[in-house]
Design a protein around this nucleic acid. Structure first.
Lengths: 226, 226
DNA sequence: TCACCATGGAGAGCAGTGCTCTCGGAATGT
DNA sequence: ACATTCCGAGAGCACTGCTCTCCATGGTGA
């Protein structure tokens, strides 16, 4: 339900003002440079008043992390056309993730870079964090159900949890632990390439980042059988 | 040449004391929690005296980063047996990198996590950072020269720089841009899986991290033709 | 040998941080 | 109209990186 009383309205408005300013500050100073006092200053209020809205700096970061995961997940979902071929879908979703990351490098770093020290992601972040994985898992499952995947070897290595197996296509003869391991590998490889590009580990090695990314992602699609 | 005068000896000793304490602090508080004052306190000296040895906190971090790259590179080099088969070599080097990372998660995060904000890695870090890549590139090149690689398609996509091509096996008929792209992909995927494991993105999905890593790395080796 | 000077410590201080506490006014529910 | 809850302000604590000044010491050229 939306806020009803004037107080709740004001509180909600100020809360989004804070997170917006925090995001803006994130874009310039990074996560470590995020300063509650600076936000309060820009808002024209005492720093102590901010603690009525976020009990601590880490809680603000948690909010930003959840919003970030959700925003990225929405971008991935929007990029997925369930009617297209698996290879096309995979490429489109991966491209969307990279585009999202390139537009907000600091926010991406907050999600997939070093964890903030002394801060362990609360349970709240899990569902939001899973959204991109769910989209990629659906692509895999749809491909299997459409008979577009090579037959699986039927190996059960026991390394992929049942919960993850459910997300990664569910039960299907064309899907076994070996396939799912490759899916998890492709998933982490996607973030590996994006992180390397964003964090500067490719500088001097990759000249055309756009086509390199497409080539690499296509290789990964081949690994998955698309 | 080693330090000669007593002063130089004392300076070198104190410098290593500082970096050792910094590394210890890194292991507990992470990069953001690294405090020059705390180091000075543990050393029983004034915080201002530390600036005689490191002009700023970022310079200390740079030192730690270079040392970290070097240590990891040495571990990778030690794990590589040039006489073994390419697949074995690839697996051994990747395992060594992961083992190194698992033993020093915070140090790994410093190297491959989010870049420290407002801090751009100086040129000094480049050669040290390249060491692991050089080892992996040598494995690829040796495999090509031994005729253990499938024939290349001969594609020149122009995405891999000449410098990187030199590291990634050098010139050989079995090596083209398509192969080198896969090599860079495998390289970043290696760090993607390690980062995901270390940063907690696999929690709940991967049950047996050790065998998952081996499986994933073997898949990557297959992608490279090993 | 002695004077000179670079070296490296100590301390005070500045500007900034997250966070806590108390106080007082204002909106809300009864 | 009253009681309660909410929310902003201000002062203050402990901490940070960093600078500046001052001073003792160690190595060195005359």
């Amino acid at each position: 339900m939306p806020p009803t009383t004037a107080r709740e309205r004001a509180r909600a408005a100020l809360t989004t003002d804070i997170t917006d300013l925090a995001r803006a500050q994130l874009a310039t100073a990074g996560a470590a440079g995020l300063s509650l006092r600076a936000i309060a200053r820009e808002l024209g209020m005492a720093s102590s008043a901010l603690y009525r809205y976020f009990p601590s700096r880490d809680d603000l970061l948690t909010r930003l992390i959840i919003d970030g995961y959700d925003d990225m997940g929405a971008a991935a979902e929007a990029a997925d056309d369930p009617g297209a071929a698996p290879g096309e879908r995979w490429l489109a979703v991966c491209r969307a993730v990279r585009t999202w990351a390139l537009a907000r490098p600091h926010e991406y770093a907050l999600l997939y870079g070093s964890p903030v020290p002394g801060y362990s992601a609360p349970e709240d972040t899990v569902p939001a964090a899973a959204r991109v994985g769910v989209v990629l898992g659906r692509v895999l499952g749809d491909a299997a159900r459409a008979g577009l995947l090579p037959p699986a070897a039927g190996r059960a290595t026991g390394t992929v949890s049942a919960a993850a197996a459910g997300v990664l296509g569910g039960a299907h003869p064309a899907l076994d632990d070996a396939v799912r391991t490759r899916a998890l590998l492709a998933w982490s490889a996607l973030y590996g390439t994006i992180s390397f590009e964003l964090f500067g580990h490719f500088t001097g090695s990759v000249t055309d980042a756009d086509t390199f990314f497409d080539d690499a992602i296509t290789d990964l699609a081949g690994l998955l059988g698309f």
